[in-house]
């Protein structure tokens, strides 16, 4: 079974929701070389992450190769309540996609 590509924790405190997310991705810069073969490792990184709350866009992240491997993201937004739907999706430079939905607790 394929491993989950995104892990999300979202909870609400008052009317404010906090989100913590972990994405699983190699985030290769394209500058690193393979130690055994000496060949350059192809660039492979997430370029765009979209976070939506009940279908409304709350945050768009534009990422470059300078973001660490297995990126971590945390942020807060207003007007949220328990049970709301929250979704994160990403696209990488090779066109691969992943998305994960979570319910705010």
């Amino acid at each position: 079974m394929a491993k989950k590509k995104i892990k999300i924790r979202a909870w609400v405190d008052g009317s404010k929701a906090s989100v913590k997310a972990l994405m699983f991705h190699p985030m290769e810069t394209g500058l690193r070389k393979d130690k055994t073969t000496g060949k350059k490792i192809e660039a492979h990184y997430i370029t765009e992450v979209t976070c939506t709350h009940n279908g409304k866009n709350v945050l768009t992240c534009l990422w470059g190769p300078g973001v660490s491997k297995n990126p971590y993201l945390s942020f807060r937004f207003n007007n949220a309540k328990k049970g709301d739907k929250f979704k994160i999706s990403w696209v990488d430079n090779k066109g691969a996609k992943a998305e994960q939905e979570a319910t705010i607790s």
């Binding site: 709350h53 409304k56 866009n57 709350v58 945050l59 768009t60 992240c61 534009l62 990422w63 470059g64 300078g66 973001v67 942020f75 807060r76 937004f77 207003n78 007007n79």
Partner: peptide, 9 residues
């Protein structure tokens, strides 16, 4: 990285 925020964020 660059983040585009909405009015509720």
């Amino acid at each position: 990285s660059s983040y585009n925020l909405s009015d509720t964020t």
